[in-house]
Computed example of a mutant assay.
Amino acid sequence: MNGQELLKQHISKTATLTDEQFDYFFSHFTLLSFKKGQTIISEGDEVDCEYFVVSGCLKAFFINDDIKMYILQFAMSTWWTSDYNALYSHSRATINVDCITDAEVLCLKSADREKLCAEIHQVEHFFRWRTNRGYVASQKRLLSFMNNDAKKRYEELLTLYPELYNLVPKHLIAAYLGITRETLSRLYNGR
Rank of each mutant, 00 (worst) to 15 (best):
L157W: 05
Y24E: 01
K170N: 15
D65R: 14
S144F: 00
C57M: 12
R181T: 14
A175G: 01
E155H: 06
D102C: 00
Y176R: 00
L108D: 01
S144G: 13
K115W: 10
E182A: 12
F74S: 04
F26R: 13
E163A: 15
T94N: 14
L106T: 10
R133V: 07
K152R: 15
A118C: 11
W80E: 03
S12H: 03
S27Y: 04
L7D: 05
M1R: 11
E5V: 12
E156C: 09
E50H: 06
Q21W: 03
R186G: 04
T78M: 07
D112V: 02
L158C: 08
G44T: 05
H28Y: 08
V53P: 06
A137L: 06
F62Q: 12
D102K: 00
F74R: 00
E20R: 10
L6V: 03
Y70V: 09
F26K: 04
Y154W: 03
A15C: 07
R113D: 02
L87C: 01
L6K: 09
Q4C: 13
N166I: 04
V105K: 12
E46F: 12
D48G: 05
H10R: 07
E20F: 09
S91H: 07
F145L: 08
V53I: 06
I179K: 11
S89E: 11
A75R: 02
F29L: 09
S110M: 13
T180C: 06
D23C: 03
N96G: 14
H90G: 02
V97S: 04
D65A: 11
L164E: 00
V136W: 13
D19Q: 08
S12C: 02
G56P: 03
A103D: 01
G44L: 00
D149P: 11
L58S: 04
L187Y: 01
G37Q: 01
E50L: 08
L32N: 10
S82M: 02
L87F: 00
G44W: 06
L143M: 14
Q122I: 11
R128F: 09
Q9G: 08
I11D: 01
C117W: 04
D66W: 08
L184S: 03
S91E: 03
L32V: 05
G134P: 04
N2Y: 08
V47F: 12
E182D: 09
D23Q: 08
F34N: 07
W129V: 08
A93W: 03
L116K: 10
G178K: 01
L177N: 01
F22A: 00
I67W: 15
H171Q: 15
N189D: 08
F61E: 02
L158W: 13
S91A: 03
G134C: 02
E5G: 10
H121M: 07
A137R: 13
I40W: 05
Y188V: 13
A175R: 01
S138K: 13
I95Q: 14
L160A: 15
E124H: 10
C99H: 10
K59D: 01
R92E: 04
